[in-house]
Amino acid sequence: MKNPAFIYHRPVGLDETLSLLADVGHDAKILAGGQSLLPTMALRLGPPEQLIDISRVPGLDGISVSATGEVTVGALVRHATVEHSADVGRYAPLVAETMPYIGHRAIRNRGTLVGSIAHADPAAELPAVCLALNATLRAVSTDGTRDIPAAEFFEGYLQTALKPNELLQQVTFPAWPSTSGGALVEVSRRHGDYALVGLACALDVRDGVVASASLAFFSVGSTAQRVSEAEAHLVGSEPSAELFARAAEVVSEALNPAPDVHGTTAYRKHLAGVLTERGLSQATAAIGVPA
């Protein structure tokens, strides 16, 4: 189980990277942490012919917070750095809460947050977190820069809106109002495994009623997905166990996850409902409480 041969590029600047992508992007994959890419290489599952190692490209390894509280994470920031970032904990508490669920420590030490998003594994946590938080994904290429809303980014199983010549440069999580609470809940078979079903949810409660709600599930289909029917059901009502139970029913109805060796469709639908109730009650409890 050894990596196939590939042409290896190690650019040292963003411009170089983008020209490379313009030239060979069709046959190339970006190598950042490699924790998702390298296993598929070793298994020789449709490996790319060229790898562009961006580890020496400056300017991609920062976490910044804007004056309005938006948190931006660069393409080379590792999960472990995000996990330990005080800024992320304060300004993007749901992202911070998600980190310990991602693989194991050794994986988080190497893997990058943006890389996980670009990989778009439907069982991974971060694409769902992006959806739940309406994150903005910035793609750059020699053609310029474009900001892609998370809702338009994840197109299919390991498929994104990124063009072959584009690099996912950063992700920006919007400011987190003090009226919001979030939760990342999942059930996995073993500690650290991909979830059987997981939920990233955020709830904004103003004047005692739900002003906005987002429920983004992972491990339920070919991409992470929001369940707008359930979200609509929540908005305008007072948070309560009964409300959440009803939302859970809507979720179980709406989702139709494919079966695999770890769980049947019926099981995953059920679990999505259970997690809806758990997630919403945790999110409610978390309102105004920094992570």
């Binding site: 990596n3 290896y8 190690r10 190598l31 490699g34 924790q35 390298l38 296993p39 070793a42 190692d53 580890s55 472990a80 194991h104 420590r105 050794a106 994986i107 030490n109 190497r110």
Partner: peptide, 21 residues
């Protein structure tokens, strides 16, 4: 995890790193 080594003091899977990295 059998291949775990410390890279700059942090644990990493050495099978999931290219030597050039």
């Amino acid at each position: 995890g059998a291949c775990t080594v410390l890279v700059d003091g942090q644990p990493a899977r050495s099978c999931l790193m290219l030597a050039v990295q």
